[in-house]
Simulated scan of single mutants.
Amino acid sequence: MARTDILLATYNGETYLPALIASIEAQRDRDYRVLVRDDGSRDGTLTLIDAWRRRDSERVLVLEADQPAGGAAANFARLMAVAEAPYVLFADQDDVWHPDKVGTTVAALMRAEAELGRETPVLAFCDLAVVDADGAVINPSFRHFQGMDAVAGAAFNRLLTENVVTGCAMGINRSACRIGCNVPAESLMHDWWLALVCAGLGKIITMPECLIDYRQHGNNAVGAKAWSAADAIRDKIRSGRFRANQQRFLAWMDRLYAQAAALERLHGAQLPPAQARTLAAFRSLPQQSFLVRRMRMIRHGFRLSGVIRTIGFYLRA
């Protein structure tokens, strides 16, 4: 059995898939297997995958898709359910991996297991270079580009309100895969769900290395968007649609509360006391008065990256 399973969920990805495949084949750490599941592509994706499988049948395994998963999160969840390796990495079809991505990520996970034990769920995630459709660098750091605090933001309380873990940048150990593979419908994305599980029950490692070219081409499932405080304030002033924006924000908060409720339902009994109290405090927010809700948000550190984002969050929540 390979030391690492690389999970690749595909859908109509023929344009950029060859570059990803080449970058996986160029990994210095070759102790891996690739599990591929396609979600009903109508372009040449399956032809590319089949050619890859025939070229490297020992490393590439294509899962039969009996019915569409209906999205990237569900597709990855089905891949996690069949992964068997001690370490699991996630690949998006339109990115390019740097040659040390597998080795560096697995080394970080192994160091954590040496300290905490293999039964502790562990997640490690790297930085990414933001590139355009042709691969030209837009920003050498996705975290800087997004104005993201990827260290403090990986704490359990912070992850309840904002995700700083990008799926294609993360790796998990066997324990995290076993515990987190049951991705509920309430989860906002598989990477966010795994981050919550690992922060609550184990450990998250924020790796400083940039190990991926994160391609932006207009059809990304999530994608990256530059952020600045000045732009955020200017957009709010110009929008003139406060009520509609507030309704969308409150709908988003409802989704956060639903995700937290799913975490309580599935893993609440296993959470350490501190995380259990934090989760209970977050879930209680909708029932509190305006003043008490904000006091609890401040006390438990429920916030977003950056002062401007956090102020806006506290004013609207």
Rank of each mutant, 00 (worst) to 15 (best):
V183H: 00
A229S: 14
A269Q: 15
L196V: 03
F313P: 04
Q247H: 12
Y32P: 15
I24Y: 01
G200Y: 08
K225V: 07
G135C: 04
R33H: 12
A185N: 12
T4E: 03
A136H: 15
V137R: 14
A91T: 10
M170T: 01
L315S: 14
S141P: 13
Q259H: 07
G218H: 01
G268D: 08
G44L: 12
L315K: 15
K203Q: 13
R299P: 09
A85S: 10
N219Q: 12
L256N: 12
D213R: 11
D43F: 03
R42L: 06
I237N: 02
R238K: 15
S289F: 02
L250V: 10
R28Y: 02
Q270G: 11
W192G: 10
E14K: 12
L285P: 07
G240C: 04
A155H: 13
M297N: 08
A152S: 09
A129M: 11
I204H: 07
A133Q: 08
L266S: 08
N182E: 13
Y214W: 10
L211K: 07
R78Y: 12
A261F: 06
A136L: 14
R33C: 13
P286K: 06
A258F: 02
D149P: 01
C198F: 09
F145N: 00
V164G: 01
V106H: 00
R158F: 04
D100N: 15
G71H: 05
D31M: 09
R265G: 08
R3P: 08
I179K: 04
R296Y: 11
F156W: 10
A232S: 05
